[in-house]
């Protein structure tokens, strides 16, 4: 990975950082969330600039970025598939469902398909327990998903491309 920021990334980053007051440690997580919102992940090259703006070392930024589940340091696929692994979903078979989605995509949780179409993630609980087991694709909820319905569900997103 290059350690230099290309000028367009730098420009974008500056835009993101502008509304956040400099030198305020409590702004670190909101800044990281804003950067991820724009880029889809936290490009490693941005961490130095973020640290300089917030006033902490890159190591501290990296520490926070790797501590929280929300932050990713790798780019993600076009569609993000999140399988809920909450208790209610577990009781209704979400482990098997996760395996089925993983098999259908050929990846493990946290990975992206080689064609960059899908990223598979797990989530601790989406709070939609009444329609367990739940899968979200790009934030759209799919409730009471059965293992045999996984292929069809994913195909509808493939076709959208």
């Amino acid at each position: 990975m290059s350690t230099q920021l290309c000028s367009c990334t730098q420009e974008k980053l500056r835009e993101i950082l502008a509304p956040f007051p400099a030198g305020r440690r409590e702004m670190l997580i909101p800044v990281l969330q804003a950067v991820q919102e724009t880029f889809g992940y936290l490009p490693e090259v941005t961490l130095d600039t973020i640290g300089a703006h917030i006033g902490v070392s890159p190591a501290k930024v990296y520490g926070v970025a790797t501590f929280y589940n929300q932050f990713r340091l790798q780019p993600v696929g076009k569609h993000i598939v999140r399988v809920c692994r909450g208790t209610a979903c577990h009781v209704r078979g979400s482990k098997l469902l996760l395996d089925a989605v993983g098999d259908a995509l050929g990846v493990k949780p946290g990975e992206t398909t080689p064609d960059g179409a899908f990223t598979l993630e797990t989530v601790a609980c989406l709070g939609a327990c009444s329609i367990a087991p739940v899968v979200t694709v790009d934030g759209n909820f799919h409730g009471a998903v059965q293992t045999r319905g996984v292929g069809k569900m994913l195909d509808t997103y493939r076709e959208k491309e």
Partner: peptide, 25 residues
Amino acid sequence: VKQGAGAFVCGEETALLASIEGKRG
């Protein structure tokens, strides 16, 4: 409003405070 970033341990009060301060929870 402070948005969490996906860490269960931040439900613990001292971890939650660390997270608000912009640190690891």
